[in-house]
Every structure is written in structure tokens, then in C-alpha cells.
């Protein structure tokens, strides 16, 4: 298959190959595991605009994990990568799959889009996600009060990449 990237621990990692069946599987997987209900437009928004940053993991052809991300021009001064959704099916957890997906995304964002930083939000109570991202060096820069629909606070995490990430926006605008 043309979308196959590599195989690790007998699991295959793929760049998402846009087709209706896989699209449905991905949306089901995300909606089962993340607290926020996303509309089809949110998935389309990500997958249609940045298909290169949607990766899946398959076990014998069955999708068991997905990461969906995007790139944006943050306040017109920085290229910011943003990890929107990351899900690994329960019975495949604690095998380093999520970490591989995040690393894959980061590597390609740096290589192809020369991002200045990568950001994401996660629930304050989502200890698993926090452990994962903090173990990679993401820094909690803000706590966002009652950010999620379920009223939980969120942390914004940033992974700095380029020099621009260490400068205040006000000083990058000149």
C-alpha cells in the first residue's frame, strides 16, 4: 500500500489514505475515547486540509490508533503545529504506540513545514496524556479554566523547536 510508512512490533504505521471506510473507523475511535464530541466538519477540517498529518496504526489491517494534527500561522509570527486528536485503542496501550505517533508527527512537521513550535491541549485530569507529552519535553505553559465541555480545566502544552518559540509575540512582530 502506498500509505504505509513503517512497521514496528508487528504493527503498521500509515499516512491516512482518504477513504470513507477508514474515515468512519477513525471518527468512531476518536468519539469513543475523547470527551469532546467532534462534528464531521472538525474531522474534515483536519483531514482535508492537512492529510499529511493524519497517521494511523494498524494491527493486521485493523486501525487501532490515530493521530490528527494541523499547522497554523500563530498570530502571524510563528508556524505552529497543533496536535488535535490522539487515540490508541485501550487494549493496545502501554506499548509506546502513542509516543511513536507523536514523534512521527513532530518529525514530519519539523522536516516539511519547519514549525517553530508544537502545541496541544489536554484535560488536567488526563494523567496518561500528560505523562506522554511531558515525557517528550512538552511544557505546560497555561492552565485554561473550565476549557472543556465537561467543565474540566485544560493545560496548554508547547514543545519549542526554533528560536522564535523563545521570543514574545510582541517582539517578533517588528
Amino acid at each position: 500500500m502506498t500509505d504505509h510508512l513503517f512497521t514496528c512490533d508487528s504493527l503498521t504505521y500509515h499516512r491516512f489514505n482518504l477513504n470513507e471506510e477508514e474515515f468512519k473507523i477513525i471518527t468512531n475511535l476518536v468519539s469513543q475515547h475523547l470527551s469532546e464530541p467532534y462534528s464531521i466538519y472538525v474531522y474534515w477540517y483536519f483531514i482535508n486540509t492537512w492529510p499529511q498529518y493524519c497517521y494511523t496504526v494498524k494491527d493486521e489491517g485493523k486501525i487501532i490508533g490515530v493521530i490528527i494534527s494541523k499547522i497554523n500561522n500563530h498570530k502571524d509570527v510563528r508556524i505552529r503545529g497543533y496536535i488535535g486528536m490522539l487515540v490508541v485503542q485501550d487494549d493496545y496501550r502501554k506499548r509506546g504506540i502513542a509516543k511513536k505517533l507523536v514523534k512521527l508527527t513532530i518529525e514530519n512537521m519539523i522536516k516539511d513545514d519547519k514549525v517553530d513550535e508544537i502545541s496541544l491541549e489536554t484535560e488536567v485530569i488526563n494523567k496518561g496524556a500528560l505523562r506522554l507529552y511531558e515525557s517528550l519535553g512538552f511544557i505546560k505553559t497555561k492552565r485554561l479554566f473550565k476549557y472543556y465541555l465537561n467543565t474540566h480545566d485544560a493545560f496548554r502544552l508547547i514543545l519549542p523547536i526554533s528560536e522564535k518559540s523563545f521570543k514574545r509575540i510582541a517582539f517578533l512582530k517588528h
Binding site: K99, K103, I106, S135, L136, G137, I139, T141, I158, L159, P160, S165, F166
Partner: peptide
């Protein structure tokens, strides 16, 4: 820690 994608200095500066 070993898996960090940035060094301590970058973390400090951010």
C-alpha cells in the same frame, strides 16, 4: 529525561 525531544536549556528558556 531520556525521551525528551528538547534539551534542558530550551525548556528553561521557554
Amino acid at each position: 529525561p531520556k525521551d525528551f525531544l528538547i534539551n534542558f536549556e530550551k525548556m528553561f528558556r521557554l
